[in-house]
Amino acid sequence: MPSETPQAEVGPTGCPHRSGPHSAKGSLEKGSPEDKEAKEPLWIRPDAPSRCTWQLGRPASESPHHHTAPAKSPKILPDILKKIGDTPMVRINKIGKKFGLKCELLAKCEFFNAGGSVKDRISLRMIEDAERDGTLKPGDTIIEPTSGNTGIGLALAAAVRGYRCIIVMPEKMSSEKVDVLRALGAEIVRTPTNARFDSPESHVGVAWRLKNEIPNSHILDQYRNASNPLAHYDTTADEILQQCDGKLDMLVASVGTGGTITGIARKLKEKCPGCRIIGVDPEGSILAEPEELNQTEQTTYEVEGIGYDFIPTVLDRTVVDKWFKSNDEEAFTFARMLIAQEGLLCGGSAGSTVAVAVKAAQELQEGQRCVVILPDSVRNYMTKFLSDRWMLQKGFLKEEDLTEKKPWWWHLRVQELGLSAPLTVLPTITCGHTIEILREKGFDQAPVVDEAGVILGMVTLGNMLSSLLAGKVQPSDQVGKVIYKQFKQIRLTDTLGRLSHILEMDHFALVV
Rank of each mutant, 00 (worst) to 15 (best):
F99V: 01
E110A: 02
D198Y: 05
V206K: 04
A207F: 00
N216C: 14
V118P: 07
A265K: 08
T146L: 06
F99R: 07
L77M: 13
E201G: 14
P70M: 11
E37K: 13
D35E: 15
P49F: 08
I240E: 00
A195D: 01
V160P: 04
N225I: 05
I142Q: 00
E9M: 03
N93R: 03
R196L: 13
R125H: 11
K39C: 06
V160H: 01
L106A: 10
K102G: 01
L28S: 10
R164K: 12
N216R: 02
L77D: 07
A114I: 02
G259Y: 00
A38K: 09
R190W: 05
I264E: 00
L156N: 00
N93W: 02
I264R: 05
T193A: 13
I84M: 13
P12G: 08
L181H: 03
L42C: 09
I261R: 01
K119L: 03
S73D: 10
E187Y: 03
T150W: 00
T135S: 02
C109K: 01
A159K: 06
D221E: 07
A38G: 12
G259P: 00
E239P: 05
S254P: 15
K82D: 03
D179W: 00
Q243K: 11
S174Y: 00
E171C: 03
P78G: 11
G134W: 07
G162D: 15
G162H: 06
L230T: 08
K271V: 11
Y163G: 00
K211I: 10
A71V: 15
G116V: 07
G185K: 06
F99C: 11
V160L: 12
K271N: 15
L101N: 00
G274I: 11
P78D: 09
H67K: 10
S227G: 04
V206S: 08
G259T: 00
T68R: 10
C15D: 14
G134E: 07
H232R: 04
G96H: 08
D140Q: 04
K98A: 11
L154W: 00
P273D: 06
G100P: 01
E239V: 03
R190P: 05
T13M: 08
G274F: 12
D35M: 09
M173S: 09
G11T: 09
L268D: 00
A130Q: 02
H232D: 03
A107I: 04
G14V: 09
F111W: 01
L105M: 01
K83M: 07
I166R: 08
E40R: 05
L28G: 10
R18E: 11
T235E: 12
K211M: 15
I188T: 06
K119I: 02
K36E: 11
H67I: 09
V206P: 03
D35C: 04
E37T: 03
I152Y: 01
R182W: 07
I142W: 00
V206E: 06
H66C: 14
D179G: 10
P46Y: 00
V90T: 07
I95W: 00
K75L: 12
G274H: 11
I264Y: 04
R121I: 01
G258N: 02
K108C: 00
K177N: 02
Q55K: 13
Q55E: 13
R45P: 10
G85T: 02
D86I: 09
L241N: 03
R182K: 12
H17N: 09
T87H: 06
D140C: 02
S73G: 14
C275S: 13
S73I: 11
G100S: 05
F197L: 09
A157T: 13
S217W: 00
T87Q: 04
R132G: 09
D198G: 07
L210N: 04
C244S: 01
W43E: 06
T146P: 05
K108T: 01
I264Q: 00
K25Q: 15
G116H: 07
D35L: 05
D221H: 06
E62W: 04
G162P: 12
P12Q: 10
P16R: 01
L268S: 00
N212L: 15
T236M: 13
P70W: 11
N228R: 00
P88S: 12
P74Q: 09
C109D: 02
